[in-house]
Amino acid sequence: MNLLAVAWEYWHQSFFILFAACAIGFGFGVLLSKNVVRMAFYLVLSLGSTAGLFFLAGAEFVGAMQLMIYVGGTLVLLIFGVMLTAQKDFINMDTHTQDWILATIVGGSLLMVLLFAAFGAEDWSKPQDLTDAKIESTKEATPLGLALTGIRVDTLGDSGDAVKQGKSGYLMPFIIVSVHLLVVLIGAAYMARTKKLSRATDDKSSRAKLMLFKMEQETEQLEEETYVVTHRGQSALNRTDSQDE
């Protein structure tokens, strides 16, 4: 109970440790796993934990966005992984040992530099008293949306010319990103398109029409050959009459 009390008293820290451990731990999972599907699964968990960290830092909207888009995007990776590994054995792609060593050395030194930088600036490592911090409703969705249309609500108090309304927003980047997305959509569709058009796709016809086409061919053949089939088509109501005749 005492532990619980401590954990609650420092709930921000507790959750930070939890999410950070998950994010990094599953990141290691991505790195060390050999199976593509497992890698994707670990990636999902890592990204999900990162979203948790975003929530903790007060960026609710970005956290939800992370879950929805990023994790949803990973879904596609996962599916590709499944598609490519379910049939063929692509798992056996071992990295050469020298690559591992080199990557570890470079990565380790990079991490050292980054950590040094992270803890280097005094302003950044200034401890904050977060004991009373709660996940407040930080009302950021509307300002974010407005900022994307070029209106900065949060900097209204600032007097600088650069942050005047209509000038400090992100309208231009927003439009660029939108166009970018459109281009990417078309480009991806173009790259992954069907390379060889077959008759079926040429024809723009559904399968039903294809079968109809096939049937017509066969009916032609049928007419050529002689099959003794009586097509009366009419109601057979008068069967007894015809027998009488």
Partner: peptide
């Protein structure tokens, strides 16, 4: 838990 972007969440 009160989440401001609950729909999205």
């Amino acid at each position: 838990q009160h989440v401001n972007t609950a729909v999205f969440f």
